[in-house]
Design a protein around this nucleic acid. Structure first.
Lengths: 255, 255
DNA sequence: CGGACCGTTCGAATAGCGGGAACAGGCTTT
DNA sequence: AAAGCCTGTTCCCGCTATTCGAACGGTCCG
């Protein structure tokens, strides 16, 4: 498990995914457009596009290529096979019904938080998150709950790798401040997010840990700042959340 | 738009996706396992795996590699950007609430049907379909509804490409029989599925067409055969469905 | 009618992919 | 303990397959 050994990547594969990324970002792109963006010969891009299209990974509409629904198949497969999904999903639905707010299940992967499932109550606001979204762990409640319950060396490594970019002016960007913050989260067992990712939005997040105590994901409740405050925010929601994550942890251990 | 011109695929990219496919199918695989399966040298697989892992597309857990949630990000992106999704989604939810059965939104891509969104009523059975699932168009109600409303040359081409494989003993496998069947669907505007994809499951599907009358997708209602029969199946559900698809078509035209 | 742009095809040169052999480490077996 | 066998990993070399640029054949626009 060598960490950062000098490994030479397969460049052809990289360009293939570069093309996919450009097509994704542009929400459909043409051959010359892609070639210009990536500074490749048109013929090269053409051959790649045709290869990906033959595999069904890109779809050609006229002269523009789009990403195909094969990625949806792959993605849903990943989600369904994840240990947390089956167990956490019903709990997330339950919490959404009880709190009438937006509830998310987030997992950690490669040092970032990934939203794998969300449910909303009747009166919940539409958050800006969506399924599959990747967010730096220090920027939101669920992420901080996860980060606080990782081994120290992993925490430091993640901070080294991604830094502490700000999402709003409330986002924690100072490393020492974050370390203290994480210590507090570790002590009480859950995390708050007060407009640190979206202005006007508060959230509470609690970690889901495995047998050895390491976080593998988290569940969070998010809602408008003027509704999530006072005892509801500091007492009631944490209680609900901890009850849910505790149950999830038990179910995880017996599956 | 040359159809089947002699184009040489980029083989390196193909092997990369072969590896991804093996990892997906095996639900996590090790280097030697993949190498054996694809008859490649261990060193080759290793280099590819490390490349994909560096890009975040594979995740390494110990010595086994898994597909990462990046595919979820790509996949959800594809779905959200699809014209039909935003428009059809609320209608699908509505139909599920009204009928108390499983309702699916299916789109056509590359000649196959892709389930992009599903909603279920309280009493609906769990169908065997899942988001992202790809099904041959002749095998189910939504697919037949789409197939019937494609240009003739596309229909023939799709049948040529994929054949008429059976899912149950009721699946239509005779080409002439299917042609007649499609003609009937075209006349009345919607399709039935009586245990043609899953034994014990019936369904009704209606196409969503664009301005020129070509189907771009379909919506279907599915449920147990003993519940979906008689006038409910032949009158009420088709009415509901046509009302919904009609509305979707109008909304599509004005977006 | 002509120019400018597109996607597409072709051939040729070389960069980089793939393979095999050797290494290091962990686990089981003797 | 130690020998054996299985990993994943690294290295380097040869040959193939990728890349590029130029030329072709469309189509759209002026």
């Amino acid at each position: 498990m060598a960490s950062d050994s000098r490994h030479r990547p397969v460049e052809t594969v990289e360009t293939a995914f570069d093309i996919v990324d450009v097509v994704k970002a542009a929400d459909g792109a043409r051959i010359t457009e892609i070639a210009a963006e990536l500074e490749l010969a048109k013929s090269t891009v053409h051959r790649h596009a045709k290869t990906l299209e033959a595999r069904g990974l890109l779809v050609q509409e006229g002269d523009t290529y789009r990403i195909s629904t094969w990625f949806l198949d792959y993605g849903i497969h990943v989600r369904n096979r994840h240990r947390l999904y089956d167990v956490a999903r019903p709990k997330v639905d339950e919490l959404a019904a009880e709190t009438d707010e937006k509830v998310w299940c987030v997992i950690e992967e490669h040092g970032v938080g990934v939203h794998i499932y969300g449910a909303q109550g009747r009166h919940s606001v539409k958050t800006h998150a969506r399924i599959g979204q990747r967010t730096h762990l220090h920027q939101f409640a669920a992420g901080k709950a996860i980060l606080a319950h990782l081994p120290d060396e992993r925490i430091e490594r993640i901070l080294d790798d991604y830094g502490l970019s700000a999402q709003t002016d409330r986002t924690i960007t100072d490393r020492d401040e974050l370390r203290e913050h994480l210590e507090t989260i570790r002590e009480r067992g859950y995390a708050f997010n007060r407009e640190e990712s979206v202005i006007g939005v508060h959230a509470v997040g609690a970690p889901v840990r495995n047998e050895s105590g390491t976080a593998i994901g988290a569940i969070s409740v998010a809602g408008p700042a003027n509704r999530l405050r006072g005892d509801l925010m500091t007492e009631d929601l944490p209680d609900l959340l901890l009850g849910a994550t505790n149950e999830v942890e038990v179910n995880l251990a017996h599956s």
